[in-house]
């Protein structure tokens, strides 16, 4: 059997490649949810938004032959779903966690319902940028194939972190999330801030879905997301409500997910189920190691999950 020239080094390289390929939807969903949660609202329904985004992007790309329009439409669909969630949660006595779960079911179901005609056809995909042109090793070149959405996701994470810290608008979002009374006293319309923050969060998740169906794995089917949106929402807590940490968490999660196929491809084949669970074990272990009862909720918006 011909050994790969990289030998065991192919595993970390594959994990880097996996991080770049797989993490984008996690980045978009978690950064979007980060904004939403900083305004004091939880949207657990982003899994459904992700799937709706994937379906509508694929449908539009198929119909118009223009995948970037698909991305735009996915963002629009996500925006609407986010606004719907915000609108319902704004009613008195309505619980946002439960509504999120309900909307997740609704959006997933609707995507499957409307998406039946798109399972078979092949839609044009978003292209890749070759960042590995300098290398002669094909693995490196393959690993460094990235999509513009990945770049956009990274930029958004940093931009959001900066905006939350340094702009008037960021201050208003944080105020709405930290303390309703103070916000009201300042004349901030908490409802409107949350509506906007939740809608934008939804739009981000929609784009994440478009990445799934139009770039990687790059086709529409019903098993496409299988919980990635839900996991991304959980990563926000893991990242303690910081957009840049959301980015790192997503990359780490993507890299860990590439471990199982990478190990199998160099011949380490036993216990692949256990290796597939690596991202979850790693996340849990990191949380256990870094949390403590005193500072676990440091960074948590004060109004988050407040029972109404």
């Amino acid at each position: 059997m011909a050994e790969s020239p990289l030998g065991i080094w192919s595993v970390p390289l594959a994990m880097l490649a996996g991080a770049i390929r797989v993490s984008t939807p996690f980045i978009f969903v978690s950064v979007g949810e980060c904004l939403t949660e900083r305004s004091g609202r939880i949207n657990l329904g982003l899994e459904g938004t992700l799937v709706m985004g994937a379906m509508s992007a694929y449908g539009v790309a198929l119909g118009t032959e223009w995948p970037w329009l698909g991305v735009l439409v996915a963002a629009g669909v996500g925006l609407l779903l986010g606004a719907l969630h915000a609108g319902i949660c704004q009613l008195p006595r309505v619980n946002d966690i439960a509504t999120g779960i309900g909307l997740m079911l609704f959006a997933t179901g609707l995507a499957f319902f409307l998406g039946k005609p798109f399972i078979q056809p092949k839609a044009p995909n978003l292209g890749a940028i070759e960042l590995g042109w300098w290398s002669s090793i094909p693995q490196v070149r393959q690993a460094l194939q990235v999509n513009w959405l990945f770049v956009l996701g990274i930029a958004l994470a940093f931009a959001l972190a900066w905006a939350l810290r340094n702009t008037r608008w960021g201050l208003i979002v944080r105020l709405a999330g930290e303390n309703i009374d103070a916000a009201l006293a300042m004349g901030v319309s908490v409802g409107r801030v949350r509506l906007i923050a939740t809608s934008i969060g939804g739009a981000f998740a929609g784009i994440g879905g478009a990445f799934l169906s139009l770039y990687y794995p790059g086709s529409w089917n019903e098993g496409l997301s299988s919980g990635q949106g839900l996991m991304a929402v959980a990563l926000v807590i893991f990242a303690r409500w910081d957009p840049v940490r959301c980015l790192w968490a997503s990359l780490l999660f993507g890299a860990a997910g590439a471990l199982s196929p990478a190990l199998q491809s160099i011949g380490v084949t036993q216990g692949y189920y256990l290796f597939s669970a690596a991202p979850y074990v790693l996340t849990l272990a990191l949380m256990v190691a870094t949390c403590s009862p005193e500072r676990s909720l440091r960074g948590a918006p004060g109004e988050l999950g407040a029972v109404k």
Partner: peptide
């Protein structure tokens, strides 16, 4: 009808019942 039809209905019902709490 596709199998997802009932999932859509479940979703609508749940959201409606939750919203009706108000």
């Amino acid at each position: 009808l596709p199998d997802a039809a009932v999932v859509v209905l479940q979703g609508i019902i749940f959201v409606a019942i939750l919203a009706s709490e108000t």
